[in-house]
Write a protein that binds this DNA or RNA. Structure first.
Length: 262
DNA sequence: GCTTATGTTTACTG
DNA sequence: ACAGTAAACATAAG
């Protein structure tokens, strides 16, 4: 699930229910998701802190408080849910934040524990943790994006998901953007025409503009994302059978007709 | 048993 | 320094 639009959705959940409220208790159900911290430290540093407006950079959610900031990453299967406290716990609920609203609580749920939670004790530490990330995909400017593509040597798809160049795009978004821009995923970034580069930027913006309010890459039948997991998926635009291969180690779906190969 | 899954890091190779 | 690949992490589903 979690690419930029999903994490932005979790940020909205946290902003809506958390901002201005105090953390009463942090219950760690599985310490396996804590990175560089432990249940005792997390609980003692966060208890009593007031949540401020949360932030997001790429796929990282920044839960600011008056004191430390919790950095949450959702890996491939994580989510943040606001649920009534009397709802039964899910087996993959790993950390529960109880606020001063006792009727409901925030739950960090994650099946696989590929990523997890980090604790940053000040703005400096937050910056340190995010130092390797490129500009956020939602705010990247055209020139920044075009320059990034020109500096990149390899194929275009791995460039789009390289978090150190542009933060927030994952496997689904990258395929969706390439399909809409009619660019083959293995085209060397440096061989892209100006028109292709501009289309990639425009479609990046369009896809995000639709996906962010939805809180996910919407699996609509008119989107590549909506058909890619079917048995023999067809291009929503031209009807050709879609191709699937591995690019940059990731499962990649594209239309051999619309996205002519290099 | 095998493969695959929306992510990232590390080790190794070119 | 830069890219590419494979493996690892942990868990479930088909």
């Amino acid at each position: 699930m979690p690419e930029l639009p999903d994490v932005e959705g979790y940020r909205r959940t946290l902003a809506e229910h958390g901002t201005g409220h105090r953390i009463q208790q942090v219950e760690v159900l599985d310490p396996g998701v804590l990175r560089d911290t432990d249940p005792a430290e997390l609980a003692s540093t966060l208890a009593g802190q007031q949540l401020r407006r949360p932030d997001r950079h790429g796929k990282w959610l920044l839960a600011h408080t008056d004191g430390p900031t919790v950095l949450l990453h959702f890996g491939m299967t994580g989510e943040l849910r606001w649920m009534r406290s009397d709802e039964p716990r899910h087996r993959h609920d790993r950390v529960v934040f109880r606020l001063d609203d006792g009727a409901a609580e925030l739950r960090y749920r994650d099946m696989r524990k590929l990523q997890g939670l980090r604790l940053a004790h000040g703005p400096g530490e937050v910056e340190q943790e995010l130092a390797e990330l490129g500009p956020d995909a939602l705010g990247i400017e055209r020139d920044e994006f075009l320059t990034m593509l020109q500096q990149r040597r390899g194929a275009i798809k791995p460039a789009l998901v390289d978090q150190s160049r542009i933060a927030g795009l994952g496997n689904l978004l990258a395929d969706e953007i390439l399909w809409r821009a009619r660019v083959h995923p293995t085209t060397p970034a440096r061989q892209l025409t100006d028109a292709q580069r501009r289309r990639l930027y425009d479609q990046l913006r369009r896809v995000l503009a639709r996906a962010v309010p939805a809180g996910r890459v919407p699996p609509l039948p008119s989107w590549l994302t909506g058909v890619r997991d079917q048995q023999h998926p067809h291009c929503p635009r031209c009807g050709a059978e879609l191709s699937r291969t591995t690019v940059g180690g990731r499962s990649t779906v594209w239309c051999p007709h619309c996205q002519a190969s290099d």
